[in-house]
Amino acid sequence: MTKSKPSRLLTGLMVLYLVYTLVPLVWLVISATKTQDDLLSTPGLWFGDSFALFSNIKETLTYNDGIFLRWLGNTLLYVVVGAGGATLLATAAGYGLAKYKFAGRRAVFAVLLGAIAIPGTALAVPTFLLFSKLGLTNTVWAIIIPSLISPFGLYLMWVYASEAIPFELLEAARIDGAGEVRIFTTVALRLLAPGVVTVLLFAVVATWNNYFLPLIMLSKPSLYPLTVGLTQWNSQATGVGANPIYNLVITGSLLTIVPLVVAFLLLQRFWQSGLSAGSVK
């Protein structure tokens, strides 16, 4: 390919967009260093008179008997079991669909494709009604069970498995006398690893960011994930007996973002290669 010179115009425009992307995040970081008084009295995009980041963090973690830590723990539980389980199910099913031509396979495709077209949130209210009949609302299962299904993850794993695993390899393993499940766990999984990391990462984001589902399923604050908890703190600022804790909402928001951003930056190579494999089709 011919080497082109960098274009100033192009770079300039992209820098403008970059600024737009970063402004809210910079604002959040700066605001997390301010006391509530400074928040209300100093300009948003510059530091206040005090540097209160550490006292804000301490207050966020200890406010209301440390409920924030409880929410963090809940989020981690939902992410580990929900996103982990979703990845496991999607990987196995994607592999099964890609490498076995069993009867009924077409029907499975048709049902799955139909399901992807149905908006998840249109399902949320009916799911709530069903789960409340089953007595599952206000339990961790109300969040975990729906998180276990990722149609997008299944699609990605199916495409990935079709390309990453040669049939000959499976045949060779069978001739060696390995069972199907053993072939999957010892031979296939290793080849699927980049795809698995991608699906896992996106499932983690989806579960970590989940708001609508826990909002309708849970009424006990002790079961809330971070997202619902933060909005509850935020709404404390208005209404009857308003008790604004803006500094805690802001610091809590920052603490909620950091783990995901770090995970994405560290795992860049995996998810970028996994995504490109998925988009070939």
Partner: peptide, 12 residues
Amino acid sequence: QEAKGWVFVGPF
């Protein structure tokens, strides 16, 4: 052997 695919797709 092909029918074993259900083992993988079934749980999902």
